[in-house]
Design a protein around this nucleic acid. Structure first.
Length: 666
RNA sequence: GCCGACUUGGCGCAAUUGGCAGCGCACCGUACUUGUAAUACGGGGGUUAGGGGUUCAAGUCCCCUAGUCGGCUCCA
């Protein structure tokens, strides 16, 4: 019996040759091993000189393995119920997994319950996942009933594999056999790179099937749609439950639900999909958000411009929008030409379009006069309403709409200004987002894809512009995530991603360089030496759109808006009717200072009023009864239920005003 | 746009195999005036998303349209 030397979790050990991970990692939470940097099954036999370490089920790799194995069991369950189902792919994803199937009849919600039962049976059997090396020829014969798997084999090692990389990799081709431990029979098999859990029992009961949906084969809408089943899987039932509670928390924060509950906005069917109306309470919030933004823009050297909602087609022909994005635009309003009795055109026909972007209008303002380098940087700002014909399936509350108002700015700068101006813009954007209560950011730098002809403009300008963006982004000190190939065809961009109160990330602002439009509109300014030069254009939307930002803030705050944004800031609740005049006198002082305050003089019981206004998420409930009035005081009750009684009225008023002024949360 | 599910008073939901459209909240009225999350009693409100079909009979079954939700694709 020969001996091999192996490094195990950093320690050197001597083992009998032929040893595998099972002997080394007896801890049941170790489900796989990483050998020389590669993830392997525990059953993988080690060679002399190997370096191996255990992979715990709760580690990121371990969770992926768990979820991938759960996906296999799901597929096995599906085929046990419907042997005709053809297998697509089944990878782990964030928090779970999915598996795609080609089936005659799509899965119904009831099917998921039956599938979970079938999965439970497989899991309880403790079937072993056994890796088997094969080759293209043998696998093609063996999987002749699985056309999608055969397609993947054909793509093996090529970039085109894409989503199928869990099935086939660049290395050897492998099939995993599921072996019944009682009989030793192979009960199921799937083309797969692995690794897997040692057996199905380790999946345990911390998994659930969540939903079914259709998905295009290999993510291409020209391909057939397969039926996808999503699931989630965790090492323990408790962790599954915690995950489900996180989802429930997200559902409680859903801006669509809160928008209705708090009477902020709605989407009347009569208007059309993706077109919102803001109710008075939502209207107050929008106005406050917009007013503050206006004030900050004014302080930062922006000039306010206005432009119409529609334009003749030639503007969007010149800008290129009609050529590039016609599908995403509402169809034109057609003004027919008028012809007299002799067939002579009396009035030429015209097509008018709803605008999908504001930039061409701002460009025309730039072009309205000859510009000098002294005019630059020129910063134009507009709350510009734009309309985009988003496909019906993508509409989603306020975050994906067909009519929206962008807080849009276009900055025209000389190439020399570019770095300084970008630095200012990024600082401005981050500062303003912080004022609205978002403070956890990272940046994404979207650059062009080398060799792709869709990117227009001089490569040298791209290079300097990208380098400038990179420099500015790095100087901000924020984490910078590269997004190669993510640039628009006309220029690179930085986007600001914000994490909300429960850790979800939202793309907020984008700062985008544009080399296309200045060219198309032949923009120029006179340089100090008298020559004509082309300005650089920066597009910048801060909130993205007011609607979307409104939705994000609603979810971030879970409807508990800070006082400065809250539609109703203070509600007074008299302990008994007799104390209403006293509360009104306090409310009058607040009102005079601009506070949005009401007194609840309804004949509900006091407790009911507290309940109502707490559920309406009013930041300050002020109560006053005999004790308060006698002391010249008032009592606070807050949304979280805590109370502070007997606060002198002057202090109470000052405290409310300060909370609003400082934009703090209470 | 594609696949699936769903749509019942303002809101949230019920209604057995096709057999009298109901409940809670909200709203309106009356009484009550209370110290920190639901006072009591009474009242009004629905052509079951819209349209068509099957049937003695349709909220329920079938078809079309619109909208919503979950995904896929897309997102200047």
């Amino acid at each position: 019996m020969s001996v091999i030397k192996v490094t195990v979790d950093g320690a050197s050990r001597e083992l009998e040759s032929g040893s595998d991970g099972f002997g080394l990692f007896t801890d049941k939470t170790i489900v796989a091993q990483r050998v020389n940097g590669e993830l392997r099954d525990l059953a993988h036999k080690l060679q002399d000189g190997d370096v191996t370490e255990g992979v715990a089920i709760s580690s990121p790799d371990g969770l992926n393995i768990l979820r991938h194995s759960a996906a296999h069991v799901l597929a096995q369950a599906v085929q046990s119920i419907n042997p005709e189902a053809k297998l697509g792919i089944g990878p782990p994803i964030t928090d779970g997994f999915y598996y795609d199937f080609d089936v005659e009849t799509p899965f119904a919600p009831e099917d998921l319950k039956a599938l979970e039962k079938a999965m439970d049976r497989i899991i309880r059997q403790g079937q072993r996942f056994i890796r088997r090396v094969t080759n293209d020829g043998d696998a093609t014969v063996e999987l002749s009933n699985e056309p999608y798997k055969i397609e993947l084999i054909g793509l093996k090692g090529s970039d085109a594999v894409g989503e199928g990389s869990a099935e086939v990799g660049a290395g050897e081709l492998t099939i995993y056999d599921n072996v019944d431990p009682q009989t030793g029979n192979v009960v199921w098999k799937d083309l797969c790179r692995g690794p897997h859990l040692p057996n199905t029992r380790m999946i345990g009961n911390g998994y659930a099937l969540t939903r079914s949906a259709a998905a295009y084969w290999r993510g291409n809408e020209n391909n057939k749609q397969l039926q996808r089943i999503y699931g989630t899987a965790w090492p323990t039932k408790d962790e599954l439950r915690a995950h489900q509670e996180r989802l429930e928390e997200a559902a409680r924060r859903d801006h669509r639900r809160l928008g209705a509950e708090l009477d902020l906005f709605s989407f009347p069917e009569e208007i059309g999909s993706g077109l919102a109306v803001f109710h008075p309470k939502g209207g107050i919030m929008r106005r406050v958000m917009e007013d503050y933004s206006r004030k900050r823009h004014e302080e930062s050297g922006y000039e306010f411009v206005y432009s119409p909602h529609i334009t003749k087609s030639n503007l969007f022909e010149q800008s290129g929008h009609l050529a590039w994005y016609a599908d995403g635009m509402f169809p034109p309003m057609v003004m027919d030409e008028e012809v007299d009795e002799n067939g002579v055109v009396r009035k030429q026909g015209q097509n008018y379009y709803l605008k999908p972007m504001n930039c061409p209008f701002h460009i025309l303002i730039f072009k309205s006069q000859a510009r000098s380098y002294r005019d630059l940087p020129l910063r134009m700002f507009e709350f510009g309403s734009v309309y985009r014909y988003e496909k019906s399936g993508v509409l989603h509350g306020l975050t994906r709409v067909r009519g929206m108002t962008q807080d849009d700015a276009h900055l025209f700068v000389t190439p020399d200004n570019m770095e300084e101006e970008l630095t200012k813009v990024l600082g401005f954007v981050l500062g303003l987002l912080r004022d609205y209560g978002l403070d956890d950011f990272y940046l994404e730098l979207s650059t062009k894809e080398e060799g792709n002809p869709k990117f227009v403009g001089d490569p040298a300008i791209w290079e300097t512009a990208t380098a400038t963006l990179q420099k500015v982004a790095t100087a901000s000190g924020l984490e910078l995530v590269p997004d190669p190939g993510g640039a628009a065809f006309y220029g690179p961009k930085i986007s600001v991603q914000a994490r909300d109160a429960i850790g979800r990330t939202w793309q907020m602002s984008t700062i985008q360089l544009d080399f296309n439009l200045p060219e198309r509109f032949d923009l120029e300014y006179t340089a100090p030496d008298g020559t004509k030069q082309r300005p650089v254009m920066i597009h910048r939307a801060l909130f993205g759109s007011i609607e979307r930002f409104f939705g994000v803030l609603t979810e971030h705050y879970a409807g508990h808006f800070p006082p400065w944004l809250a539609p109703v800031q203070v509600v007074g609740v008299p302990i008994a009717e007799a104390f209403s005049p006293y509360l009104h006198s306090i409310a009058d002082r607040l009102k005079a200072a601009g506070v949005r305050v009401t007194i609840d003089d309804s004949d509900d019981r006091m407790q009911k009023k507290i309940r109502n206004h707490t559920m309406a998420k009013v930041p300050f409930i002020l109560l006053a009864g005999g004790e308060d009035e006698a002391a010249g005081a008032v009592s606070f009750r807050f949304r979280d239920g805590h109370q502070e009684n007997g606060i002198p009225v002057d202090d109470a008023v000052a405290r409310i005003l300060k909370a609003i002024e400082d934009k703090v949360q209470v």
